[in-house]
Design a protein around this nucleic acid. Structure first.
Length: 314
DNA sequence: ACTATTTCCTGGATGC
DNA sequence: TGCATCCAGGAAATAG
């Protein structure tokens, strides 16, 4: 169940492996696939592109792509029916908001390649991206295979099919919500104003805050001493400040733990490296609170199990 | 405009 | 051993 730290780690691992790779072709599985965009659209958008960057936005993995038929393969140019896309004028470079990836900025060419499309992957619950050789066994529930110019393959595997694949022109994909590790308290606090929903639900709401899922929501609330059912609007400024710190702390710890041990994750199909962070409440129903020994409680909020210490959290 | 609930999906765990 | 049932959970859809 990848949340922000896991997705961040996976994105970093992928960036290491496939940055600069050229996607030569793509295979997509049968009908009710986890595709958000039409299959033909995805195939067209991915084929003959170069991966400029891989990064995380919320719980999404985003591949920034650029057409590759410029100076590499002339035969590609003949075949690829995409002059409309290629010839599109570059987006205006005005606003400082335009986030051009590093790779693009350091491109020595005088014409800076603009990112032209984005391949967006949401892993859902059980989604996996593996980089492997073509010979390696195709796992059950493999829904997409991207053939790379290096001969390797990038595969998307997802048994439970909660994952989603989509493509979008650059700039079109804008996840709502603020990034917890980039925002500051002044942007965090107003999220909860006038919200009667339980704080736990608010934390899970990706339109408010991106990347926090069930586990880290519980862990953050424990560290901040706030009960998951507390109405968001009733939480004091000080408590929100504490919560914000707690969220950042938990996410950062998890990223650093994952990052150190997970670097090879995308090749494997195991989960080593995940959830190294010791959970203090999540999944510890009836076990003693690590602070006060009171048994941890489990309740259901918005259909999600929520764990807390009735003594430490108010 | 919000908030709450239901739905999707399969593998693993549990119970009889 | 075998079979049915339940549960996990992100986010979109639906209902209130």
């Amino acid at each position: 169940m990848p949340e922000l730290p896991e997705v961040e780690t996976i994105a970093r691992g992928l960036a290491k492996r496939v940055t600069g790779e050229v996607i030569e072709s793509i295979w997509l599985g049968e009908k009710p696939e986890p595709l958000k965009s039409p299959a033909s659209e995805i195939a067209a958008a991915l084929e003959s592109t170069r991966i400029l960057t891989v990064r995380r936005i919320g719980k999404h993995i985003v591949f920034d792509l650029i057409r590759n038929d410029k100076r590499n393969n002339n035969n590609n140019v003949e075949r690829a029916p995409s002059p409309a896309i290629r010839r599109q004028p570059k987006p205006p470079r005005k606003g400082s908001k335009l986030r051009l990836p590093q790779a693009a900025r350091t491109e020595p060419d005088e014409s800076i390649p603009a990112v032209q499309s984005q391949f967006i992957v949401h892993l859902g619950m059980t989604g996996r991206l593996q980089v492997c050789d073509p010979e390696s066994e195709i796992l059950k529930h493999t829904h997409a295979i991207l053939k790379l110019a290096s001969g390797r393959e990038l595969r998307f595997v997802d048994p439970r099919r909660f994952g989603r694949l989509s493509v979008a022109p650059t700039g079109d994909f804008a996840a709502a919500g603020i990034e917890p590790l980039e925002a500051d308290l002044d942007r965090f606090t107003p999220l909860f104003r006038n919200r009667k929903t339980p704080i736990k639900s608010a934390l899970l709401n990706q339109k408010l805050l991106r990347g926090v899922g069930n586990i880290y929501a519980d862990e953050s609330l424990f560290r901040a001493g706030i009960r998951p059912r507390r109405r968001a609007s009733t939480i004091t400024r000080d408590q929100l400040a504490k919560l914000f710190i707690a969220i950042q702390e938990v996410l950062r710890e998890a990223i650093s733990l994952g990052g150190s041990s997970i670097s090879d994750y995308v090749d494997a199909d195991g989960e080593e490296g995940f959830f190294q962070l010791q959970h203090r409440v999540y999944g510890r129903e009836a076990q003693p609170c690590l602070v006060c020994k009171t048994p941890i409680k489990r309740i259901v909020i918005a259909g999600r199990s929520s764990h807390y210490c009735p003594k430490c959290q108010k």
